[in-house]
Nucleic acid binder design. Structure first.
Lengths: 348, 348
DNA sequence: GTTAGCACTCAAGAATTAAGAGTGCTAAAA
DNA sequence: TTTTAGCACTCTTAATTCTTGAGTGCTAAC
């Protein structure tokens, strides 16, 4: 069992290591601890902490550094989130100052604000899509057989894509097809729409069109765009500041991981559903193992019954957790408020 | 005056240094030169080349390395472009294999192909806009006062942006405003449109609308989007491979330079108009001086009377120039062909 | 003009040394 | 039983020296 003083020492080692980045020795601890004991006593306590696996040496006669397990313990039992400062609150609000025409613009902006504020790398994921409904589908002819397909959903999201009509298709046929889509599919959730698109819709279209494949492709494409989870990154380049300078190869691998949006990064953020609070993952809790000695703080936000989204921060394991946790706590509330406002603008 | 053999030596030094990355000494030159002379003779010639400022030592008793001036001379007089290999030609054609719905998709794809092929960083800039004409402007209402503004130009480019109509504006007023825009502005080039937007258009709109400012904002916004030069980058991360590993700070600065699209990079590519061939710039010919020891190969392409665009390659000064120049030569032709095809599809 | 020979230079890596921070352990003090 | 002083020991880091080898410039002979 660990004594009170030992935990105090653990906490102080973490604080000091976060600040200085160098291993912490018994002498410097003597100066910075609130209780006053000799360095020999501290050494004894440190031995106990090391025995428990919470701290470790970098070599046999060095100062101590928190271990992954030590951070875990600290985060589970010791950390005290620091409330966001007025300055930070203001910076957040200022970041959301402009006018937004899309949900995704707000979400994307979140990642930017967060990375600016922390100098780490920030991620944001829009509210999940389970409850989002199709409210309309258009094809706007632009001349030269170009058409723009537009898909609108009840969360105010709008997707569009440009197409060229295949020569075989007549425009009045297309008109009818659109009417069918709107009659049959508006009001359904996007997953339901996707399902019907494969089953019920094609037979109906066959009544009006010889080869509805081209049309289905177009619609399916835009639908997929609207249904894909939108994932934003801010402060990519900050990686270079907090990652070990020397290992450029690793740097490159992490960059690719972030940029090649192949779902791996979703594993990073973890399940969106679940606990609505702030959570830290580090060490082998992080699945893409390139991330090794990094740390991820995730925070989910929920927007009434419009679903749940997520924001996250990637940084070094030696993050000032209490500060970052407090900041993310404030941020998720602010973001939820903004998004709720945005939705009300549509519902009301 | 330099002798034939001395130029041969310069050429071989550049070739060898490009390949190995290490300074080249008289002995190894003796082995790789086509003519057979002793190392002492070569040393004499090297002294002459150094005297002329074309090569230099890294320290008083090291082998020689080409100087900026040496590269310049090489590029101006000695280099023999190597024709692109069948493999490369095929890779280019394969890269352009898919179907494209926008000019910009082709241009963007160019940067990707080129960076994949070379493992350097590639840039592409779409054909200039001087001759591009407005062919139509739409506002598509999407419900909830949301509208999508769509602007179409005669090069098949389509820009769109989402807006929320200000409460004061009635939809029939908007209809009329759109008709005016289309009547008055279609057929003009984008610069002309931009000019009229400030002079002739507002008075006309005042006849039909109380406060045309909102409408003008929307139109101006989309117009600006369409008129902004589109600039694409491929292979950003390759920077990490060919840049000095140690200096992460510089790496970061160059990344920011590339990403923050603030026109500096346009200086990098240089004037789009002018010579339609391939051109290399290096050393102090490169304006953002962070690029210091790097090298940029630019190549312009022209698409009939639809204007001129540019592709470029950023890499280390020790690039295999003959190969890269040949590759870019092939690429600009292929790209011009693709774009011409694309335009014909509209014109014809 | 070209070449062999030779003394000289310098970078880069290996080996050595010195200093200093920190530890563990023991035995005495509280 | 807990805390403390003292001390020998460990290991990193930085500075210093040593060694090796690639390469040069110069001179004198070919």
């Amino acid at each position: 069992m660990l004594t009170k003083r030992q935990l105090l020492i653990l906490k102080e080692i973490i604080r000091s290591y976060t600040e200085s980045g160098t291993p912490v020795g018994s002498k410097s601890l003597m100066a910075s601890l609130p209780v006053h004991v000799s360095s020999a006593t501290i050494r004894n306590d440190m031995a106990a902490l090391e025995e428990a696996g919470l701290i470790q040496k970098t070599h046999s006669s060095s100062g101590r550094v928190p271990s992954t397990k030590g951070y875990r313990y600290y985060l589970d039992h010791l950390v005290e989130p620091a409330a966001a400062t007025p300055f930070e609150i203001q910076a957040i609000q200022q970041g959301f100052g402009g006018h937004f025409y899309k949900i995704d613009e707000i979400v994307a902006q979140s990642a930017r604000i967060l990375s600016n504020l922390t100098n780490y790398t920030a991620f944001s994921l829009g509210p999940e899509l389970a409850n989002i409904k199709l409210t309309g589908f258009r094809l706007v002819p632009l001349g030269n057989r170009q058409v723009m397909a537009i898909l609108v959903t009840n969360n105010g999201n709008v997707e569009n894509q440009l197409f060229t009509l295949p020569p075989g298709v007549a425009s009045d046929e297309v008109e009818k097809a659109i009417r069918i889509v709107n009659d049959q599919l508006v009001g359904l959730t996007l997953p339901e729409v996707a399902k019907k698109l494969n089953t019920d819709v094609p037979p109906m279209l066959f009544k009006y069109m010889d080869s509805p494949d081209g049309f289905l492709d177009i619609f399916g494409n835009v639908l997929r765009q609207a249904a894909s989870e939108r994932f934003y990154v801010g402060g990519r380049l900050n990686l270079m500041d907090y990652l070990d300078d020397s290992d450029v190869a690793r740097l490159k691998r992490i960059f690719s991981l972030i940029d090649d949006d192949n779902g791996d990064i979703n594993r990073l953020l973890g399940p969106v559903a679940g606990t609505p609070d702030v959570k830290v993952r580090l060490g082998d809790e992080l699945t893409p193992e390139v991330l090794g000695d990094l740390s991820v703080i995730t925070a989910s936000y929920s927007v009434g019954d419009h679903g749940t989204g997520m924001i996250a921060l990637l940084g070094p394991t030696q993050m000032p957790y209490s500060k970052m946790i407090g900041l993310l706590e404030a941020f998720r509330q602010e973001l939820a408020k903004r998004l709720t406002d945005y939705y009300n603008h549509f519902d009301g």
